[in-house]
Simulated scan of single mutants.
Amino acid sequence: MNFALILLLLLVASGAIWALDSLWLAKQRLAGAKDPWWVEYGAGFFPVILVVFGLRSFVVEPFKIPSGSMIPTLLIGDFILVNKFTYGIRLPVINKKIIDINQPQRGEVMVFRYPEDPSLDYIKRVVGLPGDKVAYQNKRLTINGQPLEAQPQDDYLHSERLYYSKQYTETLGEVSHRFLNDVDAPAFIMDAAHFPGRENCLYNNAGVICTVPPGHYFVMGDNRDNSRDSRAWGFVPDENIVGKAFFVWFNFNDLSRIGRFK
C-alpha cells in the first residue's frame, strides 16, 4: 500500500472541497444554513490531512520493524521514527530529491526502497559509501583494505527461538554498534541475485568483495547471518533513500524499548 499516495489524494480532494466552499459554495448558502455533510467532513479534515502529509513527507515518518535482520539494534515490533530531511528534501510519492543536505555516512541506520521491489521499505545499516571497496570474508568486514575490529561481547539470547548467537561490537565511521554472527552459518553467500552492478562484486567461498558504484550504498543487517542485504541483492541507489532511522518510540511487547536505539 502506497500510504503517501493515498494521503496525497486525500489532501487534494479535501483541499478542493475546502477551496470550493470558501470561494463559492459558502456565499450561495443562506445565512445560518448548515453545511452539507460532504463539505463539513471534506473541508474540516483538510487542515489535519495537510499537517500529517507535511510532517510525514518532509520531517519524520513512522515505521514498524517486521523482521529480525537488525537484531540486536532493532527488534521485531519496534516502532521507529525516520528523519526525512537528514539526507535531503525529496518530493513525496516520486521521492525525487530537490534539496541536497547531507549524505549517508558509514554506521548510520537507513530506510530505503528495496531495489528489487521499490514498493517495499527496507531498513539496514550503511556499510559502504560510493567508491568504497567492501569485503566480507569469513565473516570479517574490511573497508578499503582496513579490517574492522570486532570486540566480543556476551552471547545474545534470541528469546523467541531460545538460541544464542555470538555478539560483537564494532565501530563504523563514528558509530559504535553491536552485531551478531551464528557459528554454524556458512560464510559464503547462498542466494546472490543478478543485480545492476554485479560486475563490481566478486563472490567466493569466503563471502563477497564489492566496489560500491557512484551514487550507491552498500548496506547490511546487524543480524548478519539472518539478513538478506547488499551481499545478496546489491547496492542501494541514492534515489531509493527514504531517511535516517533514529528513535524507537513504541513496542507493544516491551515498553522498555521506548527511546532505545543502540
Rank of each mutant, 00 (worst) to 15 (best):
E40S: 14
F3C: 08
K166M: 02
Y41R: 11
R29L: 15
D121Y: 09
D100F: 09
V52R: 01
A150K: 05
L25T: 09
Q151I: 15
I80F: 03
G243R: 03
G15L: 09
L30Q: 15
R260K: 15
R90C: 06
K97D: 12
D254I: 06
L180T: 02
M190F: 09
A193Y: 08
N200R: 10
V236G: 01
F188N: 07
Q105V: 07
F46G: 00
Y217S: 02
P104S: 07
K64H: 08
P62L: 13
S159H: 11
Y168S: 06
V248C: 11
L25H: 03
F46M: 10
S14E: 03
T86C: 10
L255F: 15
L23W: 11
G234N: 04
A206I: 00
G145T: 12
P62K: 09
P92D: 10
A206W: 00
L157H: 13
M220G: 03
A150D: 01
Y41I: 13
G173V: 06
N138I: 02
G145K: 08
V248D: 01
I80S: 05
R29T: 05
S67R: 05
A193E: 14
Y168A: 03
K262G: 14
L162C: 05
A232M: 08
P196K: 12
E116Q: 15
F252L: 14
D184A: 12
V82W: 00
G131F: 04
S230V: 04
H158R: 11
P92T: 06
F247S: 07
D78G: 01
G221F: 01
S57R: 02
E108H: 05
N138W: 08
I94N: 13
S22D: 13
L202P: 00
F58W: 12
N138Q: 13
G145Q: 10
D191Q: 12
G215D: 10
E239Q: 11
S176P: 03
D191C: 00
F85S: 15
D191Y: 13
M220T: 07
M190V: 09
P118K: 14
I98W: 09
I71M: 07
V51M: 13
R198F: 04
I71L: 09
V236Y: 01
N204S: 13
V48L: 15
W249A: 04
L129M: 14
I49T: 06
N204Q: 05
K27L: 11
N102R: 15
Q28K: 15
A245L: 11
L141D: 04
V12G: 04
D78T: 07
D238E: 15
G68C: 05
T169R: 11
S256M: 10
P115E: 10
P130C: 14
L148D: 03
N223W: 07
H194W: 07
K27Y: 08
S165E: 15
W24R: 09
N204M: 09
P66R: 08
Y122P: 01
P213A: 04
L91H: 03
G243F: 05
R260H: 10
H158V: 06
S67Q: 02
A43F: 08
D254R: 02
Y156M: 03
G215R: 06
